[in-house]
Amino acid sequence: MFSRGQRGELLSKILFYGVLTIVGLVFVYPFIFMVATSLKSSPEVFKNILSLFGERLRFDNYATVLETVNMGRYMVNTTIVTLGVVAGQIVTSLLGGYAFARIRFPGRDLILTLYLGTIMIPFTVILIPMYKMMVAFGWIDKLQSLIIPWLFTASGTFLMRQFFKTIPKELEEAAYMDGANRFTILWRIFVPLAGPAIATQFTISFLYAWNSFIWPLVAIQSKANYVVTQGLADIQGGYHASPPLVLAGTTLVIIPTVLVFLFAQKYFIEGVATTGIKK
């Protein structure tokens, strides 16, 4: 049937895919476990935590989490915050990236270096004064405290700059000769070309805003304004002995990020690989 060489090649292919599949399963197993548990009842979980299915799929766990624990409200809050942060970060990084890539002004390289250096500053250093500042602005316990301070991103600005640098100058020179101003050039020429960079930044900003925890924990106090990560901590506090409820809440929080990642992964992974942006 097969020659010896062919058979060897087939075997090594099977081995190769086998290893990758096992490793892949190890990495996603916690999520399979999460979804499976979220659809069981507590006694079913305690009877056999590894089983994938209980007697039936209990979607009512999700109803409980959305209504009784108010996760629905938290998801709306988080969506508002995330959309605000994503839109803001994309706009400011487009503007800043363009300035660093195309406009000559004194101190440009120094400012860029300093700006990039801020990535090294741990957020915790400014946690206490930021809290104080939100109190002074009257933003404490309001969603704007989760949006306005986070509209700016050094890494995103750098990402856009790197991308704009690859765009040939000839494209904008003609428009410039015709008297177009820089803003028009950015909007009409650069932005349409920047799809992949914007998709990358969208994903990074989305993950950043949706998953943030320590800042909401400090800035938001009343449950009406909680974001999802706080909601999860809350479920854990009240229902820690009910794994289906805890993990139904967790599934609601994790699934949107996984979907955004899967949709944008082609650009996103490339963006991460070329700029090294972590979160």
């Binding site: 916690p30 949706w210 925890f213 999802v228 967790t250 929080v253």
Partner: peptide
Amino acid sequence: ALIYIPVVASVVGSALVWNWI
């Protein structure tokens, strides 16, 4: 993509899953 998913998942969420692991 499979191996990358844990990177994008919320740390708080993952921590709750691992609690039960």
